[in-house]
Amino acid sequence: ATAAPAHRPGALKDVHLGLALPGRGRARLALLSGHYIYYHYGCDGVDDRGWGCGYRTLQTLCSWPEGRPAGVPELAAVQAALEDMDDKPPGLRGSRGSIGCVEASLCLDHFGGPQGRPCHVPRGAALQGELERLYSHLAGSEALLGPGTEAYVLVLDPHCWGDPKNPSELQAAGWVGWREVSSAFDSNSFYNLNSLSS
């Protein structure tokens, strides 16, 4: 399948660069190689506030590992693909229907993006135990594993609205940053993650 570029000129790349590392003391750091474009609400002129975060995360993943818009699907193309794959019933196209990690994984394969391997974590409290496994398969996200139980994940929040000028602006506003696993995730909620490989 082909995808039309879904970004504006001036899209920000590699927005984690320059971000101070969290934690204290020695830690093990896993970083992605390659480049990505940061996609967020409205970055292409479409007002998708309240429903587009899954699409924007998918677009960021599709831009990796080369940091180019080639192969990054527009929102309408994602909706059409999910209907065509019979993952969603007719009516998703042109709607404000959201998508999640499972749909993103299907679309990564459909649009020829990096290969995603879904991982279901039934309770946030179990996420800490998944970090070692995620660390060994890490590619599309970053994680910092510190001494003891201190563990962090890099979050690129797609909920940003507006026209950020540079990565420092995103970092200062908290749209891009390290989050401690023990406090950033609800211990009673479930999470679906995607582990990527190029």
Rank of each mutant, 00 (worst) to 15 (best):
D47R: 10
P22I: 09
R133K: 13
E169M: 11
S183T: 15
D86T: 11
P73Q: 13
C43H: 10
W51N: 06
C62D: 00
D14H: 06
A11P: 03
G177M: 01
C101R: 07
P118M: 13
E132Y: 05
P114Y: 00
L170S: 03
A80T: 13
G67P: 03
L170E: 04
P167M: 08
K165C: 13
L138K: 06
G140T: 02
G177N: 01
R24I: 12
H35R: 14
G34W: 01
L82D: 04
V153S: 02
V121K: 03
A20W: 03
C62K: 01
A70H: 06
A126R: 12
A3K: 00
S95V: 09
S187K: 13
P22Q: 06
S198I: 02
E66T: 13
G112I: 10
G50T: 11
Y38D: 09
L17Y: 04
L131N: 05
R179K: 15
P73E: 11
A27T: 05
N194Q: 14
C160T: 01
N192L: 10
G10K: 00
L156T: 02
L82A: 05
Q59R: 15
G94Y: 07
G162T: 00
A30F: 09
P147D: 09
S183L: 07
P69D: 06
A104Q: 12
A126G: 05
R56I: 03
Y135P: 00
P122Q: 10
G97A: 14
Y152C: 05
E132N: 08
E132V: 13
Y152Q: 02
G129M: 08
S183N: 04
A81P: 11
Q115A: 15
T57N: 07
L127K: 08
R26A: 12
S189F: 11
E74R: 15
L154S: 01
C160N: 01
E83R: 06
D163Y: 04
A76C: 09
E66C: 10
T149V: 07
S136F: 05
F111T: 11
P69N: 05
G42C: 06
R123C: 11
L134N: 08
D48V: 07
H35S: 15
H137S: 13
